[in-house]
Each structure stands twice: as structure tokens, then as C-alpha cells.
């Protein structure tokens, strides 16, 4: 047996094994330690990931949100206040806005919402009103709040109309409770009742989707109503 086979070959094999093992061990150790250093002191910030939230659409202008926020807050729709809805005078004060501007803010919600119409001096919802409400309620998408803005026509005293529009708003709330069985409904639905003192609707609003399509609609009847809509704004 030659010296190569007896001595050189096993030595070379063993040496190569040890050298390779050493080099690989250094490489593995360096790779792991480098990862450890990056873990302890990250050099690059983690890429930002979008966070799930309610919808925010272009009509949520700062002005619109400001009014809605004030209304939400002052009418007890946010925070722990037990009040539901607010008086017409409150809306005017807290919204700090004219009647026309107030109505104008809701114009982008024309197709998203609907106008529930009532009989004179009544607060009962008819079948069409319930259907409109159910349809609009089901089409929530990403909205956080559902607004109900109830009104009364000019006929009668402001006090009576204030109470009437309050009852109309409540009728809607009761129906939504029955419909949705949602235990957190109170946190979602904002009720406003304006009586006949603030932001009356003009006849033009008869063209908005409503519960009595095809029936007579005028300056009086359009205000025997409640406008309802989900509002796609983060407030």
C-alpha cells in the first residue's frame, strides 16, 4: 500500500472535512448573529400596513365632519351621555350653520339615504317606510353611523311639531331595534329631530328617494319626514 493511500489520502480527506466544517460553522454563526443584531437594532422600519377602519368617502369634507361631530357630541351620540337626540335649537347652536347650509351638507347622501314620509300629525311607519328603512339599513357597507333627521311641517305650533318630529325619530329607532336586534344600536344611530324650526326642506327634495314615490309631494309633505342614511365618515 502506497504512502498516498495510507497517509496522504486520509489526511487530505480529514483536513478538508475539518476546514470545510470550520468555514461553514463560521458562516452559519455569522448568519445567525447578524440576524440577532438586526433583531435587536432594526435598521429599516417595518413597512407600514394599512389598518382596518370604517369607511371614509370624499363627501366627508372637514366642514361636513365638523358639523356631524358637533351634532354627535352634543346630541349624546358619542361618549357616555344618555341623551338620545337633541332639540332643534341645540342643533342650530352646536352646528353653527344656516338652514340651507345644513341641508346642503346632506346632498351627497341623496342616493345613499332616503326620505321616510309620514301622514299629517302621525308618527307611524307604513309598509313602504319600513321597506325603505330595511333596504337602507342593510346597505351599510363601511359606515360607522346611521343618521335619522326627523322633521315636521309648518302646520301647528313649534312645540307640537318638536314633539311630533321627536316621535317620528323614535318610531324609526324602535323599528331599527326590531329589525336589527343589534345590542349596540344605540351607539350607531344618531337621532335628530328638528320640528319645524330649523332646516326645513324645499319641494326640490321630493326628487330624493322616498317611501312614497309617485305620490303627491309638496313643501308641506316633504317635511312630514325623516331623512335616513348611513354616513361613510370617520368621526
Amino acid at each position: 500500500m502506497s504512502a498516498t493511500a495510507r497517509v496522504v489520502a486520509p489526511l487530505a480527506g480529514g483536513l478538508v472535512t475539518l476546514l470545510a466544517l470550520g468555514a461553514l460553522s463560521v458562516s452559519v454563526s455569522a448568519g445567525v448573529k447578524s440576524a440577532g443584531q438586526r433583531l435587536a437594532a432594526p435598521q429599516a422600519e417595518k413597512p407600514k400596513v394599512a389598518v382596518a377602519d370604517h369607511a371614509e368617502v370624499p363627501y366627508c369634507t372637514p366642514r361636513f365632519k365638523q358639523v356631524l361631530e358637533r351634532v354627535l357630541h352634543s346630541c349624546g351620540l358619542s361618549g357616555g351621555d344618555n341623551r338620545r337626540g337633541c332639540k332643534p335649537a341645540d342643533v342650530k347652536t352646536f352646528a353653527s350653520i344656516s338652514d340651507a347650509d345644513f341641508n346642503e351638507l346632506f346632498t351627497p347622501l341623496k342616493e345613499r339615504g332616503g326620505v321616510v314620509l309620514f301622514d299629517t300629525a302621525k308618527d307611524e311607519l307604513d309598509a313602504e317606510a319600513k321597506k325603505l328603512l330595511a333596504d337602507r339599513w342593510a346597505d351599510r357597507k363601511g359606515a360607522r353611523y346611521f343618521f335619522v333627521v326627523a322633521r315636521a311641517s309648518k302646520t301647528g305650533s313649534p312645540e307640537k311639531n318638536r314633539a311630533l318630529s321627536h316621535r317620528r325619530a323614535n318610531s324609526i329607532m324602535y323599528y331599527l331595534k326590531e329589525l336589527s336586534k343589534d345590542p349596540e344600536l344605540e351607539k350607531k344611530v344618531g337621532l335628530l329631530w328638528l320640528g319645524n324650526e330649523f332646516a326645513q326642506l324645499s319641494k326640490e327634495y321630493c326628487t330624493w328617494p322616498n317611501s312614497r314615490t309617485g305620490k303627491k309631494c309638496d313643501d308641506e309633505s316633504i317635511n312630514r319626514s325623516a331623512f335616513v342614511s348611513w354616513v361613510d365618515c370617520r368621526l
Binding site: P10, G13, A20
Partner: peptide, 24 residues
């Protein structure tokens, strides 16, 4: 990692057999 170690061993052993040739 175990593949890494074992292939290192096999590489060294194969080299030994290669060098030793018919006298391995």
C-alpha cells in the same frame, strides 16, 4: 444544518477515496 454537516463529511471521505484510488 444536518445536511450541511453530513455533506461536509461525505465530501472529505470522497476526497480520501479519490486520492487513495484502488488502494483504498
Amino acid at each position: 444544518l444536518f445536511a450541511l454537516g453530513s455533506f461536509t463529511f461525505f465530501a472529505g471521505f470522497a476526497l480520501y477515496l479519490l486520492l487513495a484510488g484502488a488502494r483504498a
